[in-house]
């Protein structure tokens, strides 16, 4: 599996000179499987720039949404393949009591928030709740599971050729939990993340930021490191950067994480802040 990071930011896009190095678009990760299957993890604003790359060459796409907060769906209406009648797109998302996924997304893709209605999208679009059991998309096995965040939120684990990519962009496993000592079975997301070849995880807050954001659904650096350590992840991408963290602050957090990860026994250089535009082969060592 090969990844390209189209958006690594959390909460709200932050264009501007302070965010040039890491990027300002919200969550979107393109996953290209060995057999050419294209999967897209989340549809934040980063998906807009991905659209033109796919619109003419890819007739079948899968978008896997972790949840429906705006920073994970805002790019949907600006994704070029939705406007190509020849494209088939399956949108997977979290199940929830009451309304179906399509109806929940239609609250955004409808008046007065949108100039078009969801039924007017020219592509052949199917909306499906992610099943509780693993399923296959092309050559990739996909597993989804609910994780600790605000509202119904999924994490995903994609497996191909023995390599596991775990994607947990919005996750607060440390809430009410001792991640260092509690049994792994009782840690949110562990079932998805254990022994990941690559773990993409929420690192939204520095530890000093966290007390004012407890319960908001995101992790501080210490908790995210503890989770990654318990999961025995081989490589970690720090993701969902806080919109107030400009490049210099992310450099600092990256250095702190790297030092502490090594202290925990992690391979030097195997943790870094995610950077928009980066391309990564799952299972490949870091730079």
């Amino acid at each position: 599996m090969r990844l390209k990071l189209w958006g690594v930011r959390g909460s709200i896009p932050v264009p501007g000179p302070g965010c040039d190095a890491y990027g300002g678009n919200t969550s979107c990760v393109q996953v290209t499987a060995g057999d050419g299957t294209e999967l897209i993890l989340d549809a934040g604003t980063g998906i807009r720039q991905l659209g033109p790359e796919l619109v003419s060459r890819c007739a079948n796409l899968h978008i896997l949404l972790t949840h429906l907060h705006l920073d994970h769906i805002q790019g949907l209406m600006f994704f070029a393949p939705f406007f190509n009648p020849a494209t088939e797109i399956t949108v997977w998302g979290p199940p929830a009591a009451g309304q179906k996924l399509r109806s929940r997304l239609a609250r955004y893709i409808s008046t007065p928030l949108s100039p078009i209605e969801i039924r007017e999208l020219p592509a052949k679009v199917t909306f499906r709740d992610a099943p509780a059991e693993p399923w296959r998309i092309g050559g990739v096995e996909v597993r989804a599971g609910l994780v600790a965040h605000r509202g119904p939120t999924l994490g995903y684990c994609l497996t191909e050729d023995g390599q596991n990519l775990c994607y947990l962009p919005d996750h607060e496993p440390g809430l009410g939990q001792d991640l260092g000592r509690d049994p792994a079975a009782w840690i949110s997301g562990h079932a998805l993340a254990c022994d990941s070849s690559l773990l993409i995880h929420d690192f939204q807050y520095g530890d000093e930021d966290y007390p004012g954001h407890l319960g908001w659904g995101h992790s501080c650096l210490s908790d995210a490191l503890a989770f990654a350590h318990r999961s025995e992840a081989q490589r970690v991408l720090m993701f969902h950067h806080d919109p107030t963290h400009e490049d210099g602050r992310l450099d600092e957090l990256g250095r702190e994480a790297s030092a502490r990860w090594t202290d925990l026994g992690g391979e030097p250089g195997s943790i870094e802040p995610a950077r928009e535009g980066d391309e990564i082969e799952v299972g490949e060592s870091a730079r």
């Binding site: 609910l146 600790a148 792994a184 079975a185 009782w186 840690i187 949110s188 079932a191 254990c194």
Partner: peptide
């Protein structure tokens, strides 16, 4: 991977919360 998951006996989020 399956052995690790089976040994952990991971619980559903509803029980974890």
């Amino acid at each position: 991977r399956e052995a690790v998951a089976a040994a952990a006996g991971d619980q559903p989020l509803e029980l974890i919360l």
